[in-house]
Amino acid sequence: MLTSADFDTLLLTFKVASISTALMMVLGTPLAWWLARTSSAWKGIINAVVALPLVLPPTVLGFYLLVMMGPAGVIGEFTNWLGIGTLPFTFAGLVVASVLYSIPFVVQPLQAAFATIGELPLEAAATLRASPLDTFFSVVMPLAKPGFLTAIILGFTHTVGEFGVVLMVGGNIPDKTRVVSVQIYNHVEAMDYSDAHWLAGVLLVFSFTVLLTLYTVLKTQPTAHQLK
């Protein structure tokens, strides 16, 4: 059965994933909107940077973060200057790492959804004197709903499944950085296979259920294309 320590890691994992997802939506939405509509020369570079975590091994990201967020690193010096200390081994550090690691899973579906909407609905809204902000909330968001749904779910589940980066910057501290994937790994290494099975099973069922729900809901959602 799951031990109370296992429950703690599950709870912590969902906490990290929820906060990270909220942050990624706040940062990712304007970024995706800009990427979908700009013709700036920067578009290619920013697109590539956003997609980097998809192709880089988590160890690369984890290693850079450990060095850069450390007291001798650029980020570490900055956070020390701010008076909040260095980020590795802290909950905040884990959130920062998760946001960097999972952001392509939020930006890319949003960007695709925004791009599909096209100019027509925006122009129609403009002729009705809707402000750009009003247009975004009353026209773009409803049309891009499947994109938002996909972004939230993929961002969240990908953070839940994060392992390599956390292992490298987390330090395995109970209730602060010991997330469920690290706990499973430790169970396996300590040869506690039955504990590992329970926790792995919980995660498998959770992930499958969430994804199944997502794809079922998406199927019933009209796409922006069909609306046009």
């Binding site: 450990l66 450390g70 007291p71 260095t86 081994f89 490298m168 290494e189």
Partner: peptide
């Protein structure tokens, strides 16, 4: 650290 090499990493980077 997950093993002694990772522990060394934490200290050598001064984290």
């Amino acid at each position: 650290g997950e093993n002694i090499a990772q522990t060394y990493q934490f200290i050598s980077t001064a984290n």
